[in-house]
């Protein structure tokens, strides 16, 4: 798994699925294996398993909301981004987070 992501918005109805679809599509186009969970009006959709979470290189949280079940991602580099940026520039988000995480790892 290259990365996992979670999207969530105030109503959990419109922006959550949009951002999820945008990130999935971008990952596909970039040739990356990813799973995007939606925490929205229907609860957790496409839920990331603890195994998937731990196999990911990083976690993108496209939200300013409180995220449920964060304990799955213990030890996984996590970056929060604006959900609108995920919708508008999903490829740039993935690229930027990927580089930031790599830089963070290199600095260790």
């Amino acid at each position: 798994m290259d990365f996992v992501a979670i999207t969530s918005c105030p109503a959990g109805l419109a922006h959550t699925p949009m951002a999820a679809k945008a990130l999935e599509k971008a990952a596909d186009e970039l040739g990356l294996k990813a799973k995007v969970e939606q925490q929205g009006s229907m609860g957790l959709k496409n839920e990331i398993t603890p195994e998937e979470a731990q196999s990911a290189k990083f976690l993108i949280i496209g939200s300013d909301q409180k995220i449920e079940k964060m304990d799955r991602f213990k030890g996984i580099p996590t970056v929060r981004v604006d959900i609108n940026t995920c919708i508008k520039k999903p490829k740039a988000v993935i690229d930027k987070v990927s580089k930031a995480v790599a830089a963070r790892e290199a600095a260790k």
Binding site: A11, L13, T16, P17, A22, S41, M42
Partner: peptide, 24 residues
């Protein structure tokens, strides 16, 4: 514009979600 009753069924929420997701 999406008009949503409180306590909507999952099926309805899914349909509304699909409307916005398509706009990607």
């Amino acid at each position: 514009a999406m008009l949503v009753p409180e306590g909507s069924s999952e099926q309805h929420l899914q349909t509304l979600s699909d409307f916005s997701a398509a706009l990607i």
